[in-house]
Design a binder for these strands. Sequence first.
RNA 1: UGGCCUAUAGA
Length: 283
Amino acid sequence: VVHYTTLMSVLQRAGRWEQAMEAFEKMEAAGVVADVQAYNVAITACAKGLDWEKAWAVFAAMRRAGVEPSIISYNALVSACERCGQADRALEVVRNMRRKGLTPNAVSYNTLISAFGKAGRYQEAVRLHQLMGEAGVPDDVFTLSSLIRASEKGGRWRQAKLHFDDFQQRGVAPNTVAYNALISALGSSGRWQMALEVFQAMREDLHPSVAPDIVTYGSLIAALERGGQWHRALEVYDQMQAEGWKANGYIITSLLNACEKGGQWEKARELFGVMQNLGMDMD
RNA sequence: UGGCCUAUAGA
């Protein structure tokens, strides 16, 4: 069982969720009895495949087999709902969890907050955060990035910044993802100057867990593109390369859009060449 | 500490 579960875990993390499910079926066909962890990985694989119904089916099969779902099983099911845009169903799963005597933990709350944020239901996301505190479950950096993302949906860049500052003041140190989310939220609202400021603050942050990554640059370049700042976008691109980062599809597309808006056809042509060297499709 | 759950970028 451990070998199968390890294999499934690796496949699912590599995005090969279909193969992970095949391994699960092969395991059962081979007469190996699945344990909780094996079921949990299977549910996660379904979640990655954006198939909450299949996740639900695996969960039901687990119960039928007499295997007690753990809090992780429930959380994995909540995650499946979250990924499929089923916020209300996610909440229902957490209610079922409580009914079984399991207490929702930080992962449960964070996933719910993310689900409501993705659904554009900011107020409910904030309400869940409040309930989390009342339940004595400490919020963390996952909560923070989920709340920032929830703010971004409705163009609430001020709220995004407030969440960021609030967490920081309470001693929850932002990490790379939290900074990235904030840069993205500011960019969506057209606040490219502030996005640049946050990027600067990020570089000055002493914590080792806040090093800019490829998503940071993607978010910042997108923010500049939206603001019509093609020249600054290209500057950031140069800086990124100087630090050893290789462009990906997100970056190139944003830069192409930026150049197009600015009428920079020469630059766009260069980027086209880069894209082809990277073996990307040009659609 | 051999296997399981949550957050961030473009079109």
